Amino acid sequence: MYLHVPYCRVRCGYCDFNTYTNLSMGAGASVGDYVGTLATEMRLVRSAMDAAGLPPRPASTVFLGGGTPTMLPVSDLAGMLNLVRDVFGLDGDAEVTTEANPDTVDERALAGLAEAGFTRVSVGMQSAVPHVLRVLDRTHSPQRVPQVVRWAARAGLATSLDLIYGTPGESMEDWRRSLDAAVEIGPDHLSAYALVIEEGTRMWAQVRRGELPVPEDDDEAAKYEMADAVLAQAGYSWYEISNWARPGSECRHNQAYWLDWDWWGAGPGAHSHLGDVRLWNVKHPLAWTNRVAGGRLAVDGHEVVDAGSRELEQVMLGIRLREGLDLANLGGSAGPGSGRTPAHLVPVVAGLVADGLIEPSAAMRGRAVLTLRGRLMADTVTRALTG
């Protein structure tokens, strides 16, 4: 399950997520009413599933994202997890994660999260360099991040750090400084994402006005290669293009997205995925509240994905994983699990191997596994395998 908390203290200039800094939007939509409205939504969903004859399916992972979930008090976050337990059920070994900004949690809060049943905290570090944080509109100091990780570890929570590379004005030395700082902090898991300047964001407007330079593809590629080398040297293995972990610390919730599991999203703008059906909630907290208060599902629309689009989706997501793809699953007469590449893909795979995009040894076993260069060109590989 994914639970979306849309509130933020400050909206970062690069962010195009469904977030709001107005914490008092009216009854039901304000930050203090959020959990109550979420409870009503989740019970409506459970009733609709029961009416449709869908059996209860306990959650194996829960992820609180946003926004900044830790804008809410620990009691509210604990209440959200209890809702999942009560309404849908929760596996005994479920992975339960919340995102957190470094300046919205302290030692007591992290201990409270662990006591409530959370198992992981994903901390938005982004950079260790003050001038880079300023460009990103991040409000925390670099010194706060190692404190938070120490407190989380003391509480028994696994930790992940999120990093961003390619920020306008960030040098290679700046990026290396952030990587070295992250390794020294010693989280269980690290994510590193290339900055994408989305249309309509404040940073997009700054770039259009010439106040900030456009990130360059070659610069971001070099920074990705640096991240992979530094993190590998420190004992972190890549298991998805943007994610590295110590053995056994991979994020199961994120793996579920790439492995095409089902998930349900609750909260304003949350998306859900059930087989070939995709659903999405109304985005604005007031519209979400009004739907739910009126006894209606918050779902704003849905689509049914056809077979061709479903295969494209599965390749696009699955190719990002370290295990890669079983090529026999992509059609042809070989059949899944046969270890043989369908005849129509043999020349395509040979070309990808020759271009250095997939590993030759894996291709010989009927799997497509990206090389380091391939990770930088994953969209090219996807188009080749599905074209």
Rank of each mutant, 00 (worst) to 15 (best):
G267S: 09
M364H: 12
R310W: 13
G79K: 03
L3Q: 00
S171E: 04
A234Q: 06
V369K: 01
D262M: 04
R365C: 07
D218T: 14
E323K: 09
A52L: 09
A51D: 12
L376I: 08
V292D: 01
G200C: 05
V35Y: 02
T104F: 02
V230R: 08
D379A: 11
A39C: 02
E220W: 06
R9C: 12
G53F: 08
A229E: 10
S272P: 06
Q233V: 14
A232K: 14
A343E: 13
A29E: 07
V299G: 05
L136F: 00
A334V: 04
A100D: 00
V315G: 01
Q147D: 13
G169A: 06
E99V: 08
D188C: 11
M377G: 10
Y14D: 14
A78Q: 10
W288A: 02
V31M: 12
L376T: 07
L372S: 15
A368M: 03
V304F: 11
Y257E: 01
S30R: 02
V304D: 15
G53H: 07
L330Y: 05
M125R: 01
D91F: 09
A59E: 08
R138D: 10
I319K: 05
A52G: 08
V145H: 10
L195A: 11
A354P: 02
A287H: 12
G186P: 05
G335K: 00
V45R: 09
R208P: 09
F118C: 04
L279A: 15
G335M: 03
R154T: 15
H189E: 08
Y2S: 05
R134N: 12
V348N: 10
M364C: 12
R296D: 13
P336E: 13
A343S: 10
E313K: 09
A362P: 10
W238P: 14
A94C: 10
R43H: 13
W204E: 08
D306M: 03
C15V: 07
P360F: 03
S60H: 07
G67Q: 06
L325R: 05
I185A: 12
S309C: 10
S47K: 07
A245T: 02
A94V: 03
S141G: 09
L54A: 14
E173T: 09
A368K: 02
A221T: 07
S237M: 15
D103R: 12
G294Y: 05
E107H: 13
S24M: 11
T97S: 07
A109N: 06
S127W: 04
D33Q: 08
A307E: 15
E313W: 01
P247R: 05
G117N: 07
T386V: 14
V353C: 12
P146W: 03
L286S: 13
P142C: 03
S333H: 03
V31C: 13
Y236E: 09
V123H: 00
N290L: 15
A128S: 09
W204L: 07
Y165E: 14
G210C: 03
A350K: 11
R383N: 14
L317P: 01
P187R: 01
L212N: 00
T159V: 12
A307N: 14
T341M: 07
L297Y: 11
A354E: 11
M80G: 02
A350I: 03
P360A: 10
P102C: 13
E95M: 12
R138T: 06
L38P: 03
P56K: 09
A384S: 14
R367L: 06
G331E: 02
V96A: 13
Q255P: 04
S178G: 11
G295Y: 04
S242L: 09
